[in-house]
Amino acid sequence: MVRLIAEGWLLGLSTGPYCLGACMPFMIPYLFAEGRPTWSANARVIGEFLLGRFLAYLLFGAGVGWIGGWLKPHLTQQAASLALGATAALMLLYALVKSLPHWTLCAWALRRLPMVRMPVALGFLIGINICPPFLVAVARLLQVGGLTSGAVFFLGFFAGTSLYTLPLLGVSPLTRVPRFQRIGTLSAVLVGGYYLAVALRG
């Protein structure tokens, strides 16, 4: 068991920069757009985001381990587009609602969407984005097999990759500045739009 955790952790550590690349375009604009005033508030956002990722990994880890050889990596291209599209659409929706709260549709969405759960949702969707490190982990899991081992392996993988998201906290002193919040919201719209277009093209 310890060996499995260590293996997952080391895999996470070695492929983590890729995860930072996947999270950064979503998380940096999001942190600015949210504009939380303190380090602890921003740490909480990152914590919730990691929780979302954790849930995604756990679900996938257990699922893949359980399903074993059934889920083949060649299915992943479409799944990756789907996950990326969902993340981008959520980001776009969030940024539009945030920047145009007086628009009828946005006001309606603002009332209905659980905006406070946004980091968890983003984390979850980015977590199930099927990226190369994730594929390597899945490939290893297919050999491991078993629900518990799968979850344990992904736990280690999660811990390893999560270290790379901590530098995101560095933007904290700037997030309370209203101008930076506006800039964050605008860049969230653009990043969301770009990735949505990428996902739609497959």
Partner: peptide, 14 residues
């Protein structure tokens, strides 16, 4: 008003 800065941040990240 800060659209150029928004574009800059998005371009840097993307």
């Amino acid at each position: 008003r800060d659209l150029p800065a928004g574009i800059l941040v998005a371009m840097l990240l993307l």
